[in-house]
């Protein structure tokens, strides 16, 4: 970020720089889905850089169906009292009242998440109205920039949560990174066409052309189940990983969580990733994307 941009920012809390700042601190780390304080402790002990509180992990939401909502505040408070690392929590797409509750609990990040059942079919939350920063999922660059224009301070790939199948996360990352590369090659006249094609605000497209990167950090989520999956998505350009069902639906969550943390730090060193991948027990059972009844990544727009 330039100092000029800083000078335009008023001093104080909840500036965009402060919101993006926490995402910068999470880079190179693993954010783990947890449904109670015990799981949060396992995550912290394994080296998670943050935990994500939610009612049910995505694979259970997928299996049991029904409406998935924000977690019970009591559970979130119990997690906050148990761990010292940042605590994030999920709100339904468009459900700004859930987000208000999460803000009142002083969670460190709110995930406006397609994993929960959407509450609004036309509007995402106006995230500028909040002091707590937001992370949002995206399947492509246009979606990422629309979320940023609504105030998201961090973007993650959606992937296909609860499947243990990384193919969708890879598709989304490659799509976002690929379009960013193409935009850096475009001339100034072509940027207008890019903005139109992506249904995204022109200034963000122009910023990408100049900087060659998204205006906010980009993490990966949705289907990561092994240390190798983490190493893959980091090499594809993700700056950190969210792991949901992949940890607590595996045979040995504590050991697997620790291994994914180590693979995330050492993603460019296959010897270390090989070492930490040994003897982890069974990964979560995976699902083929074609056989899914519900595609969570299609929620949101």
């Amino acid at each position: 970020m330039s100092s000029e941009e800083g000078d335009q920012n008023p001093a104080g809390t909840a500036t965009m720089r402060v919101k993006r700042g926490l995402a910068e601190m999470l880079r190179g780390g693993v954010i783990m889905d947890v449904v109670d304080a015990d799981q949060a402790k396992v995550a912290e002990d394994a080296g998670a850089c943050a935990v994500m509180a939610l009612e049910r992990v995505p694979s259970d939401i997928r299996r049991d169906g029904g409406v998935a909502r924000m977690s019970d505040p009591e559970m979130i408070i119990a997690i906050q009292e148990t761990v010292t690392i940042p605590v994030m929590a999920k709100a339904r797409i468009g459900h700004f009242a859930e987000a208000q509750i999460l803000e009142s609990l002083a969670v460190d990040y709110i995930d406006e998440s397609e994993v929960l059942t959407p509450a609004d079919e036309a509007h995402h939350i106006d995230k500028w109205a909040f002091d707590v920063p937001f992370v949002c999922g995206a399947t492509n660059l246009g979606e990422a920039l629309r979320r940023i224009s609504e105030g998201a301070a961090l973007i993650r790939s959606k992937g296909e949560a609860g499947t243990g199948n990384v193919v969708e996360a890879v598709r989304h990352l490659r799509s976002i990174v690929g379009d960013i590369k193409k935009i850096t090659q475009a001339d100034s006249a072509e940027l207008f066409e890019w903005a139109k094609r992506l249904s995204a605000p022109l200034p963000y497209v122009q910023e990408i052309a100049e900087t060659g990167s998204l205006p906010v950090p980009m993490f990966c989520a949705g289907g990561i189940a092994t240390p190798a999956d983490a190493a893959l998505v980091l090499q594809l350009g993700a700056q950190a990983v969210f792991v949901g069902s992949g940890i607590f639906k595996s045979d040995d969550p504590a050991t697997r969580a620790k291994a994914i943390v180590e693979a995330t730090t050492n993603f460019e060193d296959p010897h270390i990733v090989a070492k930490v991948s040994r003897g982890l027990g069974a990964a979560m059972p995976g699902l083929e994307i074609e056989g899914l009844d519900t595609r969570l990544s299609e929620r949101g727009w």
Binding site: G6, N9, T15, L22, E24, A106, V132
Partner: peptide
């Protein structure tokens, strides 16, 4: 200083630097 909601950016004076420095505090 507290959780993320207390994270802030303010100018500080630094010994040995002329003019203030924008200090960004994150948790």
């Amino acid at each position: 200083y507290g959780r993320q909601v207390a994270s802030t950016e303010v100018d500080v004076d630094v010994d040995g630097l002329s003019g203030s420095f924008r200090a960004v505090y994150i948790r």
